[in-house]
Design a protein around this nucleic acid. Structure first.
Lengths: 145, 145
DNA sequence: TAATACTTTAGATTAAATCTAATCTGAGGC
DNA sequence: GCCTCAGATTAGATTTAATCTAAAGTATTA
């Protein structure tokens, strides 16, 4: 995605294209490995410092609210961020906490009676287990729900 | 579940049944609304103080590791805990952060080629939207992946 | 009982994220 | 151009969630 496209993408969602916001968004588009906020902060400032910690968090919040970025909470670890591109599910490694994409496929929704008065906005599947890096070393028999 | 059953349940998973651990487990079985660690700490000590904050966290960790309790990470909020009973999926309210159960139904796994060398241990669906309490007040058109 | 392993504790500490209040920036109106 | 004001950014303090530490307590086993 070129810089003009990123600018359009931000403005199309009602966000001003500030240098800091652009940098955060561009970083996420370029680094698709689900970085944490701390990694984004560091990465964005490595080349050209100019985006404080608070601004990194503010912009991540804005991008998530605008629907351009997805936040993935991981038990016992820092949240991870993901520029929304193609639809996909997530795989979370129980050992190292890394988040990886899993090819998208449709998931049936719950029966509407089981939803009751709730309003469903989105659904995603979280797969858990051991990532390709951890599997050879740490595999044990355990499996379950 | 009576006290003897809880004891059996702990010992069956290789955990000693200490008064504190019992209290945490019993609280989770009795309070099925996915409390946070802070709520569990408070609830357990309300009647009969005797389980410190660290012990509450230690025991929650042990119970999760033993597979008796599930931890649910919620973006931007404290994690929530859930005594594993019947299988179910989760619904997370975008507004208030509450976690609720959604009737279980089978979810197809990803194609094995898309898993690669990863080892899949479990899958769950996370539904997001507005809970029955928030829906009437805060509903807007927004929907999406 | 002695040895050992497991558990709990208060309080300090860490890590993640947010808040505060001051400052800066830029688009629109004059 | 210059004002104005909403929006954005900042450094640093603060909050919150969770963990660590080191000492003491409690079971379990031999």
């Amino acid at each position: 995605m070129d810089s003009e496209a990123i600018k359009k993408c931000l403005e199309g969602s009602g966000l001003r294209c500030t240098p800091q916001r652009y940098a955060v968004m561009a970083f996420l588009i370029e680094h698709r490995g689900h970085p944490t906020a701390a990694e984004i902060f560091e990465g964005v400032n490595r080349v050209d410092p100019g985006c404080s910690r608070a601004t990194t968090y503010n912009n991540l919040r804005d991008l998530v609210e605008a629907g351009l970025v997805r936040e993935v909470a991981v038990e016992g670890r820092a949240a991870r961020f993901d520029a929304k591109g193609t639809r996909h599910h997530h795989f979370i490694c129980d050992r190292c906490g890394n988040v990886e994409d899993v090819e998208w496929y449709d998931v049936p929704g719950p029966a509407s009676k089981s939803l009751g008065k709730r309003i469903l906005r989105q659904s995603e599947v979280i797969f858990r287990g051991l990532c390709a890096k951890c599997a050879p070393r740490y595999a044990t028999g355990s499996a379950g729900l």
